[in-house]
């Protein structure tokens, strides 16, 4: 997560009211698309020892640096898995209409196997709705995904 540190000022402006500072200041759903490398020297260090720098999570709800491992975005009253770090991959898959990130989001939203093709197709058709510009945040995009699902007969039950 350390590599996705982004300008916090940019993200703060676009947070919607439905989520409470998801993931903390420097990580999580506020991420913008088409992110780059933060260039921390600790990246090299971390990769030699296969380590992490100060963000040892354990699959639990919260990591040690205040970065939420599970996000505080909710839908249907349940907290959502933090997929913010793969939102750029997701955008590419939505554009094409296929890919692992697209499947991942479908599974995370509990979309049943028989509805996945519909999910892929509906996402694909609504690319420009979900991603209206390059400055959309991961959270905005996720909210749009749910909105698009709600207005689809087959998918609405997953976004209740």
């Amino acid at each position: 997560m350390k590599r996705f540190l982004l300008a916090t000022s940019l993200m703060a402006a676009s947070l919607s009211a439905s989520a409470v500072a998801p993931g903390g200041d420097s990580c999580g759903w506020g991420n913008m698309f088409f992110d780059g490398q933060s260039g921390l020297p600790s990246h090299v260090i971390a990769s030699i020892t296969n380590g992490t720098s100060g963000n040892a999570t354990f699959g639990m709800t919260s990591g040690t640096n205040g970065c939420s491992a599970n996000g505080t975005l909710t839908y249907g009253g349940k907290s959502m898995i933090d997929m913010s770090s793969i939102m750029t991959e997701f955008s590419e898959d939505v554009a094409r209409g296929h890919g692992d990130a697209l499947t991942t989001v479908a599974v995370a939203l509990n979309v049943e196997a028989e509805d996945r093709q519909v999910f892929d197709a509906v996402m694909h058709e609504n690319f420009a709705v979900i991603f209206p510009s390059e400055n959309v945040t991961a959270e905005d995009a996720m909210m749009s995904v749910l909105k698009v699902m709600k207005s689809d007969a087959r998918l609405s039950k997953y976004a209740a």
Binding site: L40, S42, V44, I86, A101, T103, A108
Partner: peptide
């Protein structure tokens, strides 16, 4: 499902960011 959502268990050094290389 999606193996992207599976959990990975990693053993590695816990590094202090302030350290120089």
């Amino acid at each position: 499902g999606s193996d992207w959502l599976s959990y990975a268990l990693n053993f590695g050094a816990n590094i202090n960011n302030d350290d120089n290389s």
